[in-house]
C-alpha cells in the first residue's frame, strides 16, 4: 500500500516538474524558427528560383522593356512583381514543405515529441517573412538603382512592409494546400494555384485588358488585394480603401488557417 502511494506521488511529482518555464518554451519557438531558416538557406535549389524569378521578370518587363509602357511602368510593375514574388515563399514555404513533412513522417515525429504545435507554424512563418522581405528588398533595389522609378523613401518603406506582411495570407493558403496534398503531390498542386491566381489577379497583364467576367472575379483572389495594397504603397492605387483590402486579406488568412488546422488535427 505504501509503495503504491509513493509511486503515485512520484508520478504526480514528475508531472509537476514537466511544467516548463516560459523562457524554455520561448526557446523552443526560437530553435524551431532557427532550424527552419537554416534548413532552407542551405537548399539553393529551393531558394534561388523563388528569389530570382520575380527579379528576372522585373528586369525584363519593368526595366529593359519599360519604355514601351509609359512613365509609370517601372512603379506599376514593381508592385505587381513584388506581389508575385511574395506569394511564392508563402505558398511553397508552407504548402510544399508541409505536404512533404506529412508524407515523410517528420510531422508525425514532431507531433509525438513535445514540440509546441504553434512553434512549427511560427517557424515556417519566420522563414516566409524573411524570404518575402528579401524579395521585396531586391525588387526595391532594382527599382531604385536600375529603373530610377523615383520612389519616395516612405513609399519604399511602405512597399517593404506590405510585401513582407503580404506573405501571410499565402502562407495560410499554402498551409491549407499542404494539409490536403501529401508528399510529392505538393509542388504540382501549389503551382496549379500559384500561376493561375497570379494571372487572374492582373499580375501578368493589367486587369483592364482581361475579359469582363475575370475582372469582376478578381476581388476573390487574395493576390488581387495584395497587389492593390502594393500599388497604393508606390502611389498608384485607387481601387478601394487600403483597410478594405487589409480586411479581405485578414479574413482570407483566418479562413484558410481554420480549415487547415481542423484538417491537421483530425488527419495529421
Amino acid at each position: 500500500m505504501n509503495t503504491t502511494v509513493s509511486q503515485a506521488s512520484a508520478i504526480g511529482h514528475a508531472a509537476a516538474a514537466a511544467a516548463m518555464p516560459w523562457r524554455r518554451v520561448l526557446g523552443a519557438y526560437r530553435e524551431e524558427a532557427r532550424a527552419e531558416i537554416l534548413r532552407y538557406l542551405r537548399m539553393p535549389n529551393f531558394m534561388l528560383p523563388l528569389l530570382l524569378m520575380p527579379c528576372l521578370f522585373y528586369l525584363l518587363f519593368g526595366i529593359v522593356l519599360a519604355h514601351a509602357n509609359g512613365p509609370d511602368a517601372p512603379r506599376y510593375l514593381l508592385a505587381s512583381y513584388a506581389t508575385f514574388g511574395v506569394m511564392a515563399p508563402g505558398l511553397f514555404g508552407f504548402g510544399v514543405s508541409l505536404a512533404m513533412e506529412r508524407g515523410d513522417g517528420l510531422l508525425m515525429l514532431k507531433r509525438a515529441m513535445p514540440m509546441p504545435p504553434l512553434a512549427y507554424l511560427l517557424g515556417k512563418m519566420a522563414m516566409a517573412l524573411l524570404m518575402a522581405a528579401v524579395v521585396s528588398l531586391l525588387l526595391l533595389a532594382m527599382a531604385g538603382c536600375l529603373a530610377h522609378a523615383g520612389l519616395h523613401p516612405s513609399q519604399m518603406v511602405r512597399l517593404l512592409v506590405t510585401g513582407t506582411l503580404g506573405v501571410l495570407p499565402f502562407g495560410a493558403l499554402g498551409m491549407l494546400i499542404g494539409s490536403l496534398a501529401k508528399g510529392q503531390g505538393g509542388p504540382g498542386t501549389v503551382n496549379l494555384v500559384y500561376l493561375p491566381m497570379a494571372f487572374l489577379s492582373g499580375l501578368w497583364f493589367p486587369l483592364s485588358i482581361l475579359p469582363g467576367v475575370l475582372q469582376r472575379l478578381a476581388p476573390v483572389w487574395p493576390s488581387y488585394h495584395l497587389d492593390q495594397l502594393a500599388l497604393q504603397a508606390v502611389g498608384l492605387g485607387h481601387a478601394g480603401s487600403a483597410w478594405g483590402h487589409v480586411a479581405a486579406l485578414a479574413g482570407f488568412t483566418a479562413a484558410c488557417l481554420l480549415v487547415a488546422a481542423r484538417r491537421l488535427r483530425r488527419y495529421g
Binding site: A18, M20, R24, A35, L38, D104, G105, L106, L109, A112
Partner: peptide, 29 residues
C-alpha cells in the same frame, strides 16, 4: 516525459546532427 524514435521519419537532410539535437532538446524542460 517521453522520447520517441519512429520507424520512418525523414529528418531535415540539410541540418547538421548537432543542430538537430539542439532543436529536439529545446522541446524538453
Amino acid at each position: 516525459h517521453i522520447g520517441v524514435m519512429l520507424q520512418s521519419a525523414a529528418l531535415p537532410a540539410t541540418l547538421r546532427v548537432g543542430e538537430l539535437l539542439r532543436l529536439a532538446a529545446s522541446y524538453y524542460p
